[in-house]
């Protein structure tokens, strides 16, 4: 409709004012569309797509970047024990953190949803605060809460008659700590997404279920979860990407320690690539994030397209 209207108008303009062809060129839909999207295309091409492929090339150079070494950086990584530890830790970190974020977000969203409507705002407001504070700064607070000699948690534990916990000193506890902080930051995001999903479930479904005598579990299992499935899937996949590629928390809380036991791909790549000056090796490490990111992205895209078709 609009296209016809525009074409008619430009045809009309040609017959009346033949000299304005230059101006007409800038009024044309395709020209305008080109100039409107050009900055976006340039930005994505130069600062996202190009570096993404450039990193593949970089990963195949020698440390001083003067020689092409093929896959030597990758084979070198495969021989290092630390690499396999990082692979394992990245997966444990991402999967555990996402599961707990999703669970806590789901529970809290339900709790908020049961409140009377006018009270929900206040609770939602408080519960989202961890997501709003810049992660680098809130992790500093956690670092101080976990301090080896002045830990505020240990103060409580010792006063209750327990043993002080080496929050960031012991490998196992340090892994627990980085996951805990990640869950603290990320669970509110799940909560807010699930709450939005819960509100979009039609109330009639629950009324019908109540008339049919469905129990609380049945309503949850047969109405709530199927209705929320899309949002649950998308939120989980999003979070999986972000958590897998996380940098801030591990960097500040443990910096990879003790003895590289809590490094994830991003922090290890930073340590070797930027701090250690071995850019090709750093690029190679971060490239190992690509497979899992691709899988998650494919699933998200499929989901989004499906929804687009339904609408």
């Amino acid at each position: 409709m609009s296209e016809i209207a525009v074409r008619d108008r430009s045809a009309f303009a040609v017959t009346v004012r033949p000299r304005s062809t230059w101006r007409q060129f800038f009024q044309q839909k395709s020209t305008v569309a080109f100039f409107f999207t050009l900055p976006l295309i340039l930005l994505i091409a130069v600062l996202v797509v190009y570096p993404a492929f450039y990193s593949i090339y970089l990963a195949m150079l020698s440390k001083r970047m003067d020689r092409f070494v093929g896959l030597a950086n990758f084979t070198f990584l495969f021989t290092r024990e630390t690499f396999w530890m990082v692979v394992k830790q990245s997966c444990i970190f991402a999967v555990t953190a996402v599961i707990f974020k999703a669970l806590i977000g789901f529970i809290v969203a339900h709790l908020v949803h049961t409140l009377p409507a006018e009270g929900q705002r206040k609770w939602r407001g408080m519960l989202l605060v961890p997501w709003v504070i810049p992660p680098a700064l809130s992790t500093l607070a956690w670092l101080w809460l976990f301090d080896p000699s002045y830990s505020a948690f240990n103060w409580i534990i010792v006063n209750l008659g327990g043993e002080p916990v080496p929050w960031t000193g012991d490998a196992l506890w340090a892994r627990f700590s980085v996951i805990l902080v990640n869950v603290w930051i990320g669970a509110p995001f799940f909560m807010i997404m699930y709450l939005a999903a819960l509100k979009s479930v039609p109330a009639e479904l629950y009324e019908v279920a109540a008339i049919d005598g469905a129990s609380w579990w049945q309503r949850l299992w047969y109405i709530t979860i199927p209705m929320m499935r899309n949002i649950i899937a998308i939120t989980t996949l999003f979070s999986l990407i972000v958590t897998f590629a996380n940098f801030d928390i591990v960097r500040i809380l443990t910096a990879g320690g003790p003895i590289d036991q809590t490094h994830v791909f991003a922090t290890w790549a930073f340590k070797l690539g930027i701090e250690g000056g071995d850019i090709p090796l750093g690029a190679a490490i971060s490239l190992f994030m690509v497979p899992i990111l691709t899988v998650a992205a494919v699933f998200i895209l499929r989901d989004i397209n499906k929804r687009g078709e339904r609408m």
Partner: peptide
């Protein structure tokens, strides 16, 4: 993620 792009 930015962690993939910062080195290149």
């Amino acid at each position: 993620p930015e962690t993939l792009l910062f080195i290149p």
